[in-house]
């Protein structure tokens, strides 16, 4: 379109540039601060030219917060959660889209309602469940009188117990269920032409075969999008790992940030803190940059 709006264009450029500064300034400041020595980083104002202590600070932060194993934990958790979500939501959506059975709508609503039960509102009881994941089933057996019956019949006292605190399962399993992922797949499956299913059936494929040979390969884009945002989401989790990793061995990089907050009293070691922050920020930032397309697509698709 031919349009001469020089003033407006100038204003547009200025505002966008300010927006750009606003978006990147914290990254830049973190990077510069992590290159200074203790004195420079506490100077007012902090010098904006990078200092020379970058690698020393990175190394100190790495050892202070024990970031090697913690990053590995973060990675395991984020990968596990993302893979789990991608798989489990595909299975569920397949079930509710491609089959007709009584209670199908009910299952849909059961999953929908989980949207209204975010972790934040059920932290304490979820913690209790994870301390013994079988406790709900034990409770059901007790209340229905089944444990009493079993004990009477077999003489075995029923006591189900499986603790998941401080374990990868405990970190991952409670975060896997996903309504948004399920709806994303459902939405996608509904757009897959019926003729494709019919052709597969004429070719002799059953449900499982169709799911694996046709539906999953067709969902590749969805999987990439969902996988990307769920990986980021899981990597950035804070509250849940903070709760269930009572000992350090399973803590994640994000929860370790707390160890880097400078102590009150003494000169605050902001250079170390910022070096640690930089390390923790970097993996998700790389994912966002490398997977930008999937990230944006996944976000928009899952929120619909």
């Amino acid at each position: 379109m031919v349009e001469r709006t020089p003033i407006l264009n100038f204003v547009t450029h200025v505002i966008l540039f300010l927006g750009f500064l606003m978006a990147v300034a914290p990254f830049v400041i973190v990077a510069i601060a992590s290159s200074h020595n203790l004195k420079d980083v506490n100077d007012v104002p902090m010098p904006l030219l990078p200092g020379s202590d970058f690698w020393i600070n990175i190394k100190t932060a790495w050892t202070t917060a024990d970031l090697g194993p913690k990053l590995l934990n973060s990675f395991i958790m984020a990968t596990g959660v993302a893979a789990g979500k991608v798989i489990i939501s595909a299975l569920t959506a397949f079930s509710i889209v491609y089959f007709r059975y009584p209670g199908r709508t009910f299952i849909f609503w059961l999953i929908f309602v989980t949207l209204m039960l975010p972790l934040e509102v059920r932290i304490v009881p979820t913690y209790a469940v994870v301390a013994n994941v079988l406790s709900p089933y034990q409770a059901i057996l007790d209340v229905t009188g089944l444990s009493w019956l079993i004990e009477k019949v077999s003489g075995v006292q029923v006591s189900l117990s499986l603790g998941l605190l401080n374990s990868y399962s405990g970190l991952i399993l409670p975060l896997i269920a996903t309504a948004t992922g399920t709806f994303l797949y459902r939405q996608f499956f509904l757009t897959v032409p019926d003729e494709l299913t019919e052709a597969a059936r004429m070719d002799g494929a059953g449900a499982l075969r169709f799911f694996i040979d046709i539906l999953l390969p067709l969902s590749r884009n969805n999987m990439a999008a969902l996988g990307t945002i769920m990986f980021l989401w899981a990597w950035n989790q804070y509250l849940w790992p903070l709760l269930i990793t009572t000992d350090q061995s399973h803590a994640t990089a994000v929860t370790e940030l707390k160890q880097l907050i400078p102590n009150v009293g003494g000169i605050p070691e902001w250079n170390i803190a910022m070096a640690g922050t930089l390390i923790v920020m970097l993996p998700p930032l790389i994912v966002v940059v490398a997977m930008q397309r999937w990230f944006v697509r996944g976000l928009i698709a899952t929120e619909k």
Binding site: P26, I29, V30, V254, M281
Partner: peptide, 8 residues
């Protein structure tokens, strides 16, 4: 992550 940007 919210905690990371919080520290920054």
């Amino acid at each position: 992550a919210a905690p990371a940007l919080a520290l920054a």
